[in-house]
Amino acid sequence: MSDSACLAAIAAVAENLAFLMPIGPGESDPESWRVQIQVPWVGPDGSRGRIIVALDQGAAEATAANLLGLLPGEPPTSQDVEDACSEMANVLAGNLLPVLYGLDHEFHLNPPEPTAAEPLHGPRVVRLALVEGLIGVSIHGEADNSRILKAVRPVRPRA
């Protein structure tokens, strides 16, 4: 699955869940992420992975303010920011897994876990620039494992 499909899914969630305004692909990590949340998942045939969602200061605070319906100039608390970004990560993970693997298989998402903010790395990193800031997503999993791909996308015999 292409990065552009992932980017489109991230943009749709940012826009529809947190009323953020996507601009396009982000080039690189900011100096530092404000919040980083990981969502571990378990999929078919014992496959496992995690989706890490990072938000810079602007994106994190705008997400919290919009989810809470805060007035302009009313700053969210640190707990608000963490809770809002956790839900953003949860919804992003739920929306990205079917983009990556299709709709026919069940994935169980573990509760979002805040982690130490660090530069994003991994087999696939996608960044979305917003008017408000930047969201980065790092996708880790067993998707490159042919055994898992076979379980996720069964090969159908040709007619």
């Binding site: 529809n16 869940l17 919804v91 739920g94 929306n95 897994l97 079917p98 298989h105 069940e106 998402l109």
Partner: peptide, 24 residues
């Protein structure tokens, strides 16, 4: 009201008489 997208799981929930809407 969930992020769930798995069609088998959604079908199971609907079979238990629930409606389903996707977050967001």
């Amino acid at each position: 009201v969930s992020t769930e997208s798995s069609q088998p799981r959604i079908a199971r929930l609907k079979a238990m008489g629930a409606a389903f809407i996707h977050k967001p």
